[in-house]
Amino acid sequence: MGKLTNPVLLKELKLRFRFFKSVSGMLAYLIAMSIFVIGFFYITTQLTGTGYFRPSESFYLFSMLSLIQMGMILFIAPGLTAGAISAEREKQTLNMLLTTTQSSWQIIIGKLLSSLAFLGLLLFASLPFYSLVFLFGGISPVQLLTVFFFYFVTMVAIGSIGIFFSTMTKRTITSMIATYSSSVFVAGFTLFFFFISIMVNQTMIEAGEIAPFTYFWLSINPGALVLSLLSGNLMTEFYTLAGIDIPIWVTYLLFYTVLSIVLLTISSSRLRANMKRG
């Protein structure tokens, strides 16, 4: 047990969940989600005029919830992780942490997991909304689990970017700007580059040749991933377009796993950078 516990993780969890701030944040998020779900039910039943909520509409609700939650991860994860190390530096607590016998990896992983724990709890707390989807049908438990698994992958990836900038920069504000910019890049610019590459590779696409960049930009976009997990037809069209028949989730998983490992490794080696001779 002793070997498995991470002091930084335990301390951070204590600090994060001790006060009403975290609970109030979670409450606000769940209220917002409740308003959205109730609104969705209301509009759907009103628009159809039947008063019924069909499984196909339940599927749309699931898709919307999944996209919103993915957006929430991209928005909140930078804020939770971008100050993990730099704030310790600003508060002058980092040096004391670095003189303990904890390894750099232990500190980095403790910081990452504790920062993401709040986000994980938000996602967990939103599970009852998904139970509504199950009530009306149209979605399988495997789909739900897959979506949640990719939430986790995205959380770790964005969190790793936050930890990386937090380690590399001296000030939290700089790290925050860099991490949010990365998040915007992942969510928006990848899509922008996807459309650009379609235009640039028009001839290749029309000739049925492989367009790797077109494939790459879309396959690292979290929104596209969620849609690919929910809609098979949409993806078949895309595979035909890019000429590559590898499921988006494979590339997404591979790319963000490698990115997270690389960034966390660099962060870990740079944490005690001053101890390297040169």
């Binding site: 002091p7 001790r18 002058q92 040096n95």
Partner: peptide, 28 residues
Amino acid sequence: LGYMPDFFGVYDQLKTDEYLDFYGASYG
């Protein structure tokens, strides 16, 4: 080695014994 720097911060939201407990755990 025990090191006390000239300028240092503390984790304000921890209690005194929790503060020491955290560092104790950090030293294994």
